[in-house]
């Protein structure tokens, strides 16, 4: 698997600060909307509004402080495969069952992890399913199924 490398520099810091600023904005705007209440009955919006304003200020401060030295090289291939792998696990678990969901999760780990060979992955998937069945289904009685629909 070729690595998808990204150098995180000032731009990444700025984007994340902008994200925080936006989160602050959401808190503040909705807070205003939820109502500030009275002194003897503070409304549900007062805290979000206050927090939002503080977060916006701190986000600006973070953006201002950011320096290029903070940059680091990141290989995103793990992210690009493992995250969909977990999402698929969640989508599959209820209707396809533990075996299919886990197989897919491990499958998606292969391109993310150079040293994981298909054979090793197969063995791992089998072991996880076996352990999952023993511990979680038989042991903890979780409402999971091995092969979907009960």
């Amino acid at each position: 698997m070729k690595s998808v490398s990204v150098r995180l520099g000032l731009w990444a810091e700025r984007i994340f600060a902008a994200f925080l600023f936006a989160m602050g904005g959401v808190l503040a705007v909705y807070g205003w909307d939820y109502g500030l209440g009275e002194m003897n009955d503070i409304g549900p919006g007062a805290f979000p509004l206050g927090l939002g304003l503080v977060l916006m200020a701190l986000a600006l401060r973070c953006a201002y402080e950011a320096t290029p030295e903070d940059s680091a090289e990141r290989d995103l291939s793990a992210l690009l495969f493992m995250v969909p792998g977990i999402v698929l696990w969640a989508l599959l678990i209820d209707w396809a069952g533990l075996v299919a969901a886990t197989a897919v999760l491990v499958l998606f780990c292969i391109p993310a992890e150079a040293k994981l060979r298909p054979l090793g992955a197969l063995v791992l998937a089998v072991l996880l399913c076996l352990a999952g069945w023993l511990v979680f289904i038989e042991g903890f009685n979780l409402p999971l199924t091995l092969f979907g629909a009960r």
Partner: peptide, 22 residues
């Protein structure tokens, strides 16, 4: 390469188990 998929698997099941909700 074996540890991380195992951790992800355990986290998935563990988080799912709290409310039995994906």
């Amino acid at each position: 390469q074996y540890l991380y998929p195992t951790i992800l698997f355990l986290i998935c099941v563990g988080v799912y188990s709290v409310n039995n909700n994906v």
